[in-house]
């Protein structure tokens, strides 16, 4: 995995795992790889993986079962909530940057619609 070295690594590991959950590569109830295996796969420190998983356990996205390992939560509302949170985060960033260019809300909506329409044409 490629990291942005300006952003805390534990944060990027969390985002990577969130992404795998959103896209279904990690399904609800699925067991996560062992901590050391994750560290080797992502080429990061074991302690950093531990920190990322610790925070995700606190958030309720992952459950830790003693002696068995870590599992993606089976509570789908929690995953839906996470997805909404991630969408909001992306929108917030884009909105703030467009707003900083002095675009009004109407102009932002219009630009976004235009962008999606153009993108659709390019894909064809």
């Amino acid at each position: 995995m490629k990291f942005d070295d300006k952003v805390p690594i534990y944060y990027q590991i969390k985002n990577h795992l969130y992404h795998e959950m959103m896209t279904g590569q990690l399904a609800p109830g699925e067991k996560l790889p062992a901590v050391r295996q994750l560290a080797v796969d992502l080429t990061v420190n074991v302690n950093t993986v531990q920190r990322a998983l610790g925070e995700m356990i606190t958030e309720g996205i992952i459950t830790s079962q003693r002696g068995k390992g870590n599992f993606v939560t089976t509570e789908t509302p929690r995953i839906t909530q996470l997805k909404e949170h991630l969408i909001m985060e992306q929108l917030e960033r884009a909105y703030e940057q467009l707003h900083a260019l002095n675009l009004s809300d109407e102009e932002i909506i219009a630009s976004l619609k235009q962008y999606i329409a153009q993108r659709g044409q390019q894909d064809d």
Binding site: I9, Y10, Y11
Partner: peptide, 14 residues
Amino acid sequence: SDAIREEFGLSIED
């Protein structure tokens, strides 16, 4: 390392 990234917004190299 992560404190450098978090507090200064810098890469370790920078």
